[in-house]
Design a protein around this nucleic acid. Structure first.
Lengths: 108, 108
DNA sequence: TATACTTACTTACATAAAGTAACTATCTAT
DNA sequence: ATAGATAGTTACTTTATGTAAGTAAGTATA
């Protein structure tokens, strides 16, 4: 055990972002509040997993769920302040991808 | 279901980084080239998954595997230029985690 | 020589996570 | 009455990950 242990806060952040679909859901919500099926069709996630992720992100304070009392009722998901604070990370990934993701690696 | 509207390069980058352990392995290698067991003990990953990840990252051109012909042979893993180019992303995650990961969310 | 230890893995098996499709319940439009 | 949308849930299958043990080459100790 000679190696320094990785910072638990960093590890927690990584475990959030490296859960499948999570970063994509947050990225999608960066463009504004959206409904369940909008997110679903935009990123191609299954209803089951999206449901899980949104619940999880809501618990973590990243996403907010609003029930808008129209007829029929509209349920809107949006980012909290904490959620928007992740934007610089997503933008870094975005610009990295434009520079470094080549057609060949896209096929792998 | 409709076609996903997200940029394929971005999606590819996300699928790389949101694979479990990948970001942590890259982060670990930011501090310099390391051997298999060093990475393993530093981040607490199983040999099987580390083996998978390193092969995958090598294939993606992110990690380089060097065999150093000493006795016994030493196998060193390091980041390529492409690998180091991910540093800003990891640093963003690092600073985000310091600001936003609270003790409560650590327990979830 | 025999035994143990290290490194860099692989293999077999068990469990957890994700994908798929169908289903529910409420409301709206035709 | 029938069909379609919305926001999910449920049951089942497939894939990914975790755990533990094993392998093969080499070193060190007794």
């Amino acid at each position: 055990m000679k190696q320094p242990t990785i910072c638990p806060k960093f590890e927690k952040a990584i475990s959030l972002l490296s859960q499948r679909w999570t970063a994509l859901v947050i990225y999608q919500l960066l463009s504004g509040s959206q409904r369940f099926t909008e997110i679903q069709s935009a990123i191609g996630i299954s209803g089951k997993v999206l449901s899980d992720r949104l619940k999880d992100l809501e618990h973590q304070g990243v996403v907010k769920r609003d029930v808008i009392p129209e007829t029929p009722v509209i349920i809107e998901y949006s980012l909290t302040k904490k959620g928007y604070s992740l934007e610089p990370i997503l933008r870094e990934i975005e610009s990295w991808s434009q520079l470094w993701v080549t057609p060949e690696t896209e096929l792998s």
